[in-house]
Design a protein around this nucleic acid. Structure first.
Lengths: 342, 342
DNA sequence: CTGTTAGCGCTTTCAA
DNA sequence: TTGAAAGCGCTAACAG
């Protein structure tokens, strides 16, 4: 493997100046810089990460730590995250370390070890919860990290997120605007930050329309077809709240809702309006629903690039607040909502 | 972060001797070793990997490189591999780097970069093909690697594999022993090493029983229910070979075969015997098939530990041939095979 | 059994 | 604009 010394020798400069040329320092003549870079390329020079780390304190490696769960192997969202991040980081010439911990193993010690031996510069946190111990630990240890999502209302940490509050507010407002008053929300697993934010946006829209909150219309669960199917069936059972509109946390849930409504002989949107949030993970074509599903649209795949870029910035010393990004979303109306029957 | 110097100062020894004590060198008194290790623990000392790498040439990091494919997100085998290896390596105090390359990006340059900057000590190769360029490259670059599976008949490289030849030989022999002569094989994707080995084992068993090879009975495809269902249906269509026994590359295929046979009104094992190889990935309970499925059994989850251990050995300087391991398998007869009708 | 010395490959003062 | 020297944290060769 070619070392810096080899390159220096090749161009007849000192190792020092060669290093400066390669790292685009200002005090190098343009001609020298070009000559050095050319030689480096010719020799296939690659800076030794360990050596660099030793002196600069940075290794160019980042990590994702997650406990192994029963359903990890079938969790396509997780694979999406991993694939997306891995690709973005390699684009930035950083290595992406995936650490899957035993299910019963506490993760904080894992972080401790990983930062203790100086291998990693920073972390990406996924599946943030409302009171996340990992964020607390990393903050106190002064290790850069970025959260996919947000922890709490006024987060101090770096994050990339969509505006879940606004997304739900927009969906619910659209429905109240049409005249609906019994609007169900099939949300995700309680405790996840984005789920909490969505509930709040939903509640706010209802409040603004002067509609009281009916707990029988708010449901939490794993975002699956089964959740949508079972909950819908239950809501239309005798004594159930029988909503006139249903908001789904994602498209998979909506799939189940459509099935249940069809089985119940209820028509979309004539009898029940349906609205869902689409993160483009489930690979379900929302336009292919019949009737075509109206959604709030915010592709999750667009988040890996800002996530990776922000973490890189953070490690590079940028201030936290430059790395607090909220991605866009939009409401796409198709044919699954209408005014309620009189 | 506590450094070696801190520990040395704490116990009043030189850095050198402290290092030796921590690394269990022979020329350290038992008392000293204990004292040093105690102090290291108290200070929460973690050796800096980069520093160690710089001098010893080893970083304690290994990698898996794979191209991103369309179905990666739903490839549960892949997740199993990743989760299994990640856990085993962390048990060995090594970091596991997952690099997912763009689908269209050639992987050799990725390896080149990864080893060029000295970040990784070795690699695990999955999805080995009969003439694998990665193995050729890594061999020539003298980078330790271990293959999940085997490349070619007399591999020089380290590997962990099951005896696919023997597995198929055993299944096919069991069936010929019962008197079957039209035995179909629904194998995996052509070109993968294990698929080739399985075909050979199958052919050998047939030859030994004096049965000519009928190409209409050998099928390649993605190991899915659909493959089993469609192929079976086709084989029993008019003009098809109508086998009396079907061997399935895995349990998912068998699931499809069972469905097809049921739809065709054919009974297992009275009309058709079915046998499958079970790697315990599909999470299908073979005993819950009706009638219970007979299988060759070789849990894939048992392979991560030997795979990780062998790679660690290899990096530690053990010779290749100590890291060529073939895992066990066994034939479990339940109720899906019987002698053919006369 | 223990300490001294040297050096891994790189970046960064400090001087010229 | 360039170079010499020092040092990041650790291990190994070479004394004692």
């Amino acid at each position: 493997m070619a070392t810096l010394k080899d390159v220096a020798w090749e161009v007849g400069l000192s190792v020092t100046q060669t290093s400066r040329a390669l790292n685009d320092h200002s005090d190098v003549s343009e001609a020298t810089r070009a000559r050095v870079k050319q030689a480096a390329r010719a020799l296939q020079y690659r800076p030794n990460l360990s050596a660099r780390k030793l002196v600069s304190g940075r290794s160019g490696m980042v990590g994702l730590v997650t406990p192994r769960t029963r359903d990890l192997a079938t969790d396509s969202l997780f694979m999406e995250v991993v694939a997306g991040l891995s690709m973005e980081f390699s684009e930035l010439e950083m290595q992406f370390v995936l650490h899957i911990a035993r299910e019963d193993e506490p993760v904080i010690p894992v972080y401790q070890r990983l930062i203790g031996n100086g291998a990693l510069d920073g972390f990406v946190l996924i599946h943030a919860t409302d009171d996340d111990p990992r964020a607390a630990f990393l903050t106190q240890a002064e290790i850069p990290f970025i959260v996919h999502g947000r922890i709490g209302a006024e987060p101090k940490h770096a994050y990339f997120d969509v505006d879940n509050h606004s997304i739900l507010h927009q969906m619910a407002s659209h429905l109240t605007g049409l005249g609906h008053r019994r609007i169900a929300l099939l949300n995700g697993i309680a405790g996840r930050c984005y789920v909490t934010a969505r509930t709040q946006g939903y509640h706010q829209a209802l409040t603004e329309a002067g509609i009281p909150h009916d707990p029988a219309l708010l449901h939490h669960g794993e975002m699956t077809e089964a959740f949508g199917l079972l909950t819908t069936t239950a809501m239309f059972a005798p004594g159930g709240p029988a909503p006139t509109a249903i908001i789904c946390g994602n498209v998979r849930i909506a799939k189940g809702v459509y099935q249940a409504l069809a089985a119940l002989g209820l028509r979309v949107p004539d009898d029940v309006s349906v609205l869902a949030h689409d993160d483009h993970i489930a690979r379900l074509q929302t336009a292919a629903f019949y009737p075509a599903l109206s959604v709030t649209d915010a592709p999750l795949r667009d988040s890996w690039k800002p996530l990776a870029a922000s973490l890189a910035d953070l490690i590079g010393g940028e201030p936290q607040d430059r790395a607090q990004v909220v991605g866009p979303h939009r409401l796409i109306l198709r044919h699954s909502t209408a005014a309620p029957r009189p």
